[in-house]
């Protein structure tokens, strides 16, 4: 019982992660894929932060006069620092992904994956029929 309660958090975060992963894999709309990636990312953050939690602990901030009571338990500050960095890097990659989506929409006129694949294979077929023989059929 203690084992289950002690690991329940981790499992719940993994369930959330997998919902985000499913959105990324199973949905064709690129904006939705990015949202799914954000869900996945936030769940990884929660998982990571939960490793630093101590029972009965408090946020790792000392009193301003720096009179530190040795009986107060503080949670582990290190995961917090790493995840702060990760959040900012995450928004940087998200914005880059969104800029790519804007460009894709400009070139293809759509942001649905299957439509883009269709256009791509059509272009490929045209190129093959135009230049196929000269390139040995592998243009």
């Amino acid at each position: 019982m203690e084992f289950i309660l002690g690991h329940l958090n981790y499992w719940l975060f993994i369930v959330l992660m997998m919902i985000g992963f499913y959105i990324v894999v199973a949905r064709g709309n690129y904006i939705k894929k990015i949202v799914g990636l954000n869900v996945f990312q936030a769940s990884v953050f929660m998982f990571y932060i939960s490793i630093g939690k101590v029972d009965g602990g408090t946020a790792p901030i000392f009193p301003t006069d720096m009179n530190i009571d040795p009986n107060v338990v503080y949670s582990n500050p290190l995961p917090h620092v790493l995840i702060l960095t990760a959040i900012v890097v995450g928004i940087a990659t998200t914005s880059l992904g969104l800029a790519l989506i804007v460009r894709i929409r400009e070139e293809f006129g759509t942001i649905e994956e299957d439509e883009i694949l269709e256009i791509e294979s059509k272009l490929q077929a045209e190129e093959n029929s135009a230049e196929g023989p000269a390139m040995g059929g592998r243009a």
């Binding site: 995961p79 702060l84 959040i87 928004i91």
Partner: peptide
């Protein structure tokens, strides 16, 4: 989970900036 700094960064960046983008 005691991560107050992470909480306000997530609220500002995750809920604010990324939604706007």
């Amino acid at each position: 989970l005691d991560a107050v700094d992470v909480a306000f960064t997530e609220a500002a960046v995750g809920a604010g900036i990324s939604t706007v983008l």
